[in-house]
Amino acid sequence: TDIRVNCVAPGPIDTELIRRLGNQVVSDMIGASPLKRLGAVDEVAALVLWLCSDAVSFNTGAVFDMSGGRARY
Rank of each mutant, 00 (worst) to 15 (best):
D65P: 02
N6P: 02
L35D: 04
D54E: 08
D28N: 15
R37I: 15
S57C: 10
Q24F: 12
L51T: 12
V44W: 03
A32T: 14
A46T: 15
W50G: 09
E43A: 07
G39D: 01
A45F: 06
D54A: 13
D2E: 12
V56A: 14
V63F: 03
M29A: 05
R4E: 07
D65H: 08
T1N: 05
L35C: 04
E16M: 11
D65Q: 13
R70K: 08
G22V: 08
R72M: 15
V8H: 04
L35K: 06
R19S: 12
L38A: 05
G68V: 06
S67G: 12
G22R: 09
T1H: 05
V63G: 04
C52S: 12
Y73L: 12
S67P: 06
M29I: 15
A55N: 07
N23S: 10
M66Q: 12
V41A: 02
A40Q: 14
L51P: 02
G39L: 07
T60P: 01
N23F: 06
G68K: 00
M29P: 01
S33M: 03
V44D: 05
F64W: 03
G68N: 03
A55G: 08
G61I: 09
D2F: 01
D2C: 08
R19Q: 15
S53D: 05
A9Y: 10
G69P: 00
L51E: 09
P34V: 09
V48T: 10
I3F: 08
A62C: 11
P12I: 09
Q24R: 10
E43Y: 03
S67N: 08
A45E: 08
C7H: 07
V5G: 00
V44T: 14
S67F: 06
T15M: 14
G61Y: 02
R37Q: 09
D42M: 11
M66S: 05
D65G: 06
I13A: 14
V25K: 13
E43C: 04
V48A: 01
F58E: 04
V56H: 03
D14F: 13
L35E: 04
V56S: 14
V48H: 00
V63L: 07
A32Q: 15
D65W: 08
R70Q: 11
R4T: 15
T15H: 10
R20C: 14
F64R: 02
A40G: 04
M66V: 08
